[in-house]
Nucleic acid binder design. Structure first.
Lengths: 107, 107
DNA sequence: CTACCTTTGGACTGAAGTAGTCCAAAATGA
DNA sequence: TCATTTTGGACTACTTCAGTCCAAAGGTAG
């Protein structure tokens, strides 16, 4: 699976590669057609469940789809601020590493 | 400036190193004492303005403090999901890179 | 123990944000 | 032209969150 520029682009590509209309995919996912359109346009976020359904429907790894989604969220969050992205991600990785060990109790 | 485990820990350390009570720092920042307490406990998020004031008050780089803050936000976001952090950050960096060039028009 | 100050956190309110729906206009294309 | 898809505006309900107030708990010195 390829990571497009945004999550919306990613799922849009999956759909268009199969020449399916929004309506049809939306039905399969059991969501409103308009909702799906918005997800493809990044103006609504999919739930975890929808991501899972996407993965099943298009037979792609749900882990990859989740990465596509989370990286979007994280990228936008950092973009809104200044140009520290690399540094932010670097420090964030350390924090995640630390928090992973601490997670159980967390205090 | 040192990056503690969380943003709250970072500012708490700054304050305690100077032996200042919450009340005093809160006054200087012009926020409620309880608010500051919550920020140190990571249960409320500081605004950009507050981060700036923090930086001035403790004479640390506001860029660093911002990194401390953003990395927290980003770390928690990724932590909530599975264990893909490194991959997420890697893809996110690419997206930021791309978005930075596109930002002006954005579509 | 008392008195005082600090720290912690519960509870609440109002504001901001967001998902999801419905609908209609615009685009596409046969 | 007609049918279908795509787009997005507008709205509602729901959730989240900042910010405040207050009271209980903790610490410390007299």
């Amino acid at each position: 699976m390829k990571f497009e520029k945004t999550f919306g682009d990613t799922v849009k590509k999956l759909r268009e590669d199969k020449n399916l209309p929004l309506r049809e995919v939306a039905e399969a996912l059991n969501i409103d057609t308009s909702m799906l359109g918005k997800i493809e346009k990044n103006s609504r976020k999919p739930t975890k469940q929808i991501i899972e359904k996407f993965a099943k429907l298009f037979k792609v790894s749900s882990k990859d789809l989740t990465i596509a989604f989370l990286s979007d969220a994280v990228a936008y969050q950092v973009m809104e601020e200044e140009n520290f992205s690399s540094e932010v991600f670097k420090v964030a990785e350390e924090k995640v590493e630390y928090l992973k060990t601490k997670k159980p109790l967390d205090k």
